[in-house]
Design a protein around this nucleic acid. Structure first.
Length: 685
DNA sequence: GTAGGGTTAG
């Protein structure tokens, strides 16, 4: 960086002697090096602070081609009493670099010195729109009127757009109606407003009233229809577009992804003449959003091998897909890619990484990432608290929660959800009640149905079934499937058939197709020997065509995911796996393990068949695979789509001891760390 | 030499 030294006295007296020379050089020079030399020269010769010189340099550094924001700022800082033009340039530069916060802050600084003009206002209004800062936007609107720029077309259009983006469609309309001279941009701004707030009929009406339309107008409308699920209508407009641009293709892809039409999305993706980063991001995020994690990761790989640089958005999508599949190795490689390419972890990417590591079962790495983030934000604290809770590490989660409060952070609703979830997985009833009340009374946060769900779950797991039932009856919202399921599971665990039946009936009203409901209900009857009721449930399931959701377990090895279902014989290592299973069975037997068949679902009659079913549970196959393939010293990580059954839980504990291996199992809601014959959940799950 | 409108992202 250049040092702005005091110019020598003699040169200062005759600054204009070299000014025209500097001016013409400035016009023709191309490299950053050259401009820096001229900049140095201007400082030496005392021309830097000449009225139009400084802003010329500033404009050069602020130019999108050079785009050295920090340097531009340092140049700006050196200007003595910068003219409005310089302020405008630097504010615009901040907007262009997605630093709207700083742009707005600079604008308020500017107000102490000068009066803004018709160049400043649209720019800073755009910044407010980006920040969703409606209050600042309104303030600046008032200021614009006060200083006499209320009728400037550019100012008005930017206001229409700002109000539209902030969801204040009525205010947008009011400014629009007050415009004397409307052009395409002002029409499009309002059209965007209607599209954004889902008023697509009004948008369509406006579209038809417009004196002119361009590809912007069509794209805005396409996006509006896409977002509210009317993909056919969007397609119609797209088909009629004379000049389809990249953005309209992207908007269509998003629309198809939103309506889960992967075939059409992919078709457009291949058809379009050119793609950009957003196109790829839309495909990746679209797949991820719909739970198509494998496809999302394949797209991500393809994007990289095409030589495109991913953005934050790309990485967010890829990391979420990794979390969904729990492919730790992939997550690690994305993490190192991020470090290598200088992606900051201070923002959502840090949150996403913490989430990824916890969901991949590596809570240690999640904690490491959390510790390395210098400026910890609420999202980071929340992510790690949620992660620790999932891993049954309630004490650590609660400790971090109080540390976070000490650091001056205001926890929000999700943070409390993490805390309550942690309490639930550790069976901390009183602590759970305490935080639930603290949230309401100390932080003024209205509990959502999820918060109630957590607390009710805590009560149910601990056997406080009456209290849970009372809470369900008295809570201000209609109980959902999750809540009735908690009550039902609690009733099964504590043998309360009455409350269990009540919960099951309510559950069937709310969500008649919940297969888990029938399974738990029949397990409950079976556990207490009510076999006639067991067959009734079986009949009901048959009549309604409900089948037990097939369980599967996955294990990743060397970047490949191996999936197993009950009694699976399709794997290439089947022979080895089954002989390992035999060995496991013998070792378990010699430890005196007696299979617990109480949770085996009905259709199997004899004890022997039931035991055989347990032995072939998908996670046992996955464990066998892990014992064969995962190098000793490394934990065996398994992902399940169902809850761990009683017998598998006992068996896995024993296996961790017998084979001296750490086994980490992720089920639908949490992690179990099996080690030395014990589980991190302390048998409470 | 400076200004307003569209796509991904919780």
């Amino acid at each position: 960086m250049l040092k702005h030294t005091e110019p020598s006295h003699s040169l200062l007296q005759q600054p204009d002697s070299r000014q025209s020379f500097l001016f013409s050089r400035l016009q023709t020079c191309k490299t950053q090096q050259e401009i820096k030399q001229l900049h140095a020269l201007s400082l030496k010769t005392g021309n830097f602070n000449h009225p139009s010189m400084a802003s010329r340099f500033l404009a050069f550094y602020a130019d999108p081609k050079i785009n050295n924001l920090d340097y531009a700022r340092s140049v700006f800082e050196q200007i003595q009493e910068p003219k409005l033009l310089s302020w405008n340039i630097i504010i615009k530069c901040y907007i262009e670099n997605q630093r709207s916060n700083d742009a707005v802050a600079l604008f308020y600084e500017l107000l102490h010195e000068l009066t803004p003009d018709v160049f400043t206002l649209p720019c800073v209004i755009k910044g407010c729109a980006r920040l969703n800062a409606i209050q600042e936007g309104e303030q600046i609107h008032g200021l614009a009127l006060k200083i006499g720029f209320g009728l400037d077309k550019f100012v008005q259009s930017s206001l229409v757009s700002m109000y539209s983006k902030c969801g204040e469609i009525d205010s947008a309309r009011k400014v629009f109606d007050g415009m004397g001279d409307k052009d395409l941009v002002s029409w499009n701004s309002l059209l965007d407003g209607y599209s954004r707030c889902g008023e697509v009929e009004l948008a369509m009406e406006l579209f038809e009233q417009m004196p002119d339309r361009d590809s912007f107008s069509c794209t805005v409308l396409i996006d509006g229809f896409s977002k509210c699920g009317r993909i056919e209508k969007a397609r119609e407009i797209f088909n009629r577009m004379p000049d389809r641009n990249l953005v309209s293709w992207n908007a269509m892809i998003n629309g198809y992804m939103k309506s889960r039409d992967f075939v059409m999305a992919r078709q457009l993706f291949h058809q379009m003449p050119t793609k950009n980063q957003i196109t790829w991001n839309s495909m990746i995020a679209g797949y991820e959003f719909n739970g198509k994690f494998m496809e999302a990761l394949e797209m991500f790989e393809e994007m990289l091998s095409d030589g495109l640089l991913p953005s934050h958005v790309t990485l967010l999508g890829a990391l979420s897909a990794v979390s969904g599949l729990a492919v730790l190795s992939k997550g690690k490689s994305i993490h190192s890619f991020m470090v290598k390419n200088g992606f900051e972890l201070d923002g959502v990417l840090g949150t996403s990484l913490i989430e990824m590591y916890s969901k991949c079962g590596s809570i240690d790495s999640a904690q490491t990432v959390f510790k390395t983030i210098r400026q910890k934000k609420l999202g980071h604290w929340t992510a790690i608290i949620v992660g620790l809770g999932m891993h049954g590490m309630a004490n650590e989660a609660l400790e971090l929660f109080s540390e976070m409060c000490k650091a001056g952070m205001q926890p929000h609703a999700i943070t409390f959800l993490g805390v309550l979830n942690a309490c639930s997985h550790a069976g901390l009833v009183d602590t759970g009640r305490y935080y639930f009340n603290k949230m309401i009374h100390d932080y003024g946060i209205e509990p959502t149905i999820e918060h109630y769900g957590c607390l009710i779950d805590i009560l149910c797991r601990a056997g406080y079934l009456e209290e849970a039932k009372n809470m369900i009856d008295s809570m201000p919202m209609t109980p959902n499937k999750v809540i009735w399921m908690s009550l039902l599971s609690g009733s099964r665990n504590y043998g309360n058939v009455n409350i269990g039946e009540y919960a099951a009936h309510r559950l069937m009203e709310v969500a008649p197709n919940t297969n888990g409901c029938y399974v738990v209900l029949s397990n409950m009857y079976a556990a207490y020997g009510q076999w006639d009721k067991v067959s009734q449930v079986r009949e009901q399931m048959k009549k309604r065509g409900i089948k037990k959701e097939p369980g599967f377990s996955c294990i990743e090895h060397k970047g490949v995911i191996h999936e197993f279902v009950v009694g699976d014989k399709s794997h290439s290592q089947t022979k080895e796996i089954y002989s390992k299973l035999k060995e496991m069975r013998e070792k378990l037997l010699s430890m005196g393990h007696v299979p617990d068949t109480s949770q085996v679902l009905l259709c199997l009659e004899g004890e022997k068949e039931k035991e055989a079913e347990l032995e072939n549970h998908s996670e046992r196959l996955a464990i066998a695979f892990g014992l064969i393939n995962v190098e000793p010293g490394n934990p065996i990580r398994i992902i399940k789509n169902l809850r761990v059954c009683n017998d598998c839980h006992t068996v896995t504990k024993l296996l961790s001891d017998i084979y001296n291996r750490e086994i980490i199992v992720r089920d639908t809601s949490r992690f179990h760390h099996f080690k030395n014959g014990l589980c991190s959940c302390k048998d409470f799950w």
